[in-house]
């Protein structure tokens, strides 16, 4: 690496190019979204499409205002986010605990491996009606849905991470006289942190799937409820608005995990 107190002109050129390129990417991204929404608006105005079934940005803004005015917007958003958060946490923590147990005991791993594979292949949504019968048609069933969808994948991904930790690192700790618990704490968990976080990223998405599915089936509040309700009474404005809010909320939750990743993994 050339180290100069003055940045060389080559370097400056390079940095400028880099920046220019970045600006180009970001502005194209913005332009694209603006174009889509504008086209949508114009197409609906000019009746190329029927805003009754496709809705239209200006109508969505109006809907948003309405929902904001009676405060129900926030109730629905909070309900869905809360359910997703609880489902996500339960799925992640539960998955972590079960993965640790299965790492600890080879016997249990061998016993449960085929069950995990089958449960993973099963579309968990099919269990929705059973959950409703068992847990009633309330938040319990919705959270259970989110939990069920995320926990199996969590267990499988985390366990895979635990089991692929470098054997020699484990041997090193053993040569210092480490017991199994120390090995778990000093090498297994920290070494598989990147893997665990990518499991979290997948989990966020899956929890949203679980919650929205659950809200479709039961519930009297939440974004999933708004979407189903809106489609039933043919208020596509409501449906589209809810979908957009959902996209924004999901993005935020994903960014939160990505931020967590950056904070936790400093060594790369």
């Amino acid at each position: 690496m050339i180290k100069n107190t003055e940045i060389s002109w080559r370097r400056r050129e390079y940095l400028k190019d880099l920046r220019r390129h970045q600006i180009k990417v970001i502005s194209t991204q913005l332009l694209l979204i603006v174009a889509v929404f504008s086209l949508w608006e114009i197409a609906a105005d000019l009746r190329w499409i029927d805003p009754f079934v496709t809705s239209q940005p200006s109508r969505m803004v109006a809907t948003l205002r309405l929902l904001h005015a009676d405060g129900s917007l926030y109730v629905h958003i909070a309900t869905t986010i809360w359910e997703t958060f609880v489902g996500f946490m339960l799925g992640t923590v539960g998955g972590l605990i079960i993965a640790v147990v299965l790492w600890w005991s080879d016997f249990l791993f061998q016993v449960f491996e085929p069950y995990l594979v089958v449960l993973n292949a099963l579309p968990k949504v099919a269990l929705g009606p059973i959950l409703i019968v068992w847990l009633g048609n309330g938040q319990g069933a919705i959270i259970a849905m989110a939990l069920l969808i995320s926990i199996i994948v969590s267990i499988i991904t985390m366990l895979h991470g635990f089991r692929s930790v470098d054997e020699e690192k484990i041997k090193l700790l053993k040569s210092f006289g480490a017991n199994k618990f120390t090995i778990l704490r000093k090498v297994i968990l920290p070494a598989s942190l990147p893997n665990t976080i990518s499991a979290l990223k997948v989990n966020v998405g899956l929890s949203w799937v679980g919650v929205i599915m659950g809200e479709f089936l039961v519930s009297r509040a939440g974004l999933g409820y708004l979407i189903v309700y809106g489609s039933q009474v043919f208020k596509l404005d409501l449906v589209m608005t809810s979908v957009i809010i959902l996209i924004i909320a999901a993005t935020f939750m994903y960014l939160l995990v990505a931020y967590l990743e950056k904070k936790l993994i400093k060594w790369n």
């Binding site: 090193l172 120390t182 993994i265």
Partner: peptide, 22 residues
């Protein structure tokens, strides 16, 4: 060992202290 087996999430000094820690 053949490979250094340094823990990439620990700094040099922390890597060296793993034995005393355990």
């Amino acid at each position: 060992f053949q490979r250094d087996c340094l823990f990439e999430w620990r700094t040099v000094i922390k890597n060296c202290l793993i034995g005393p820690e355990i």
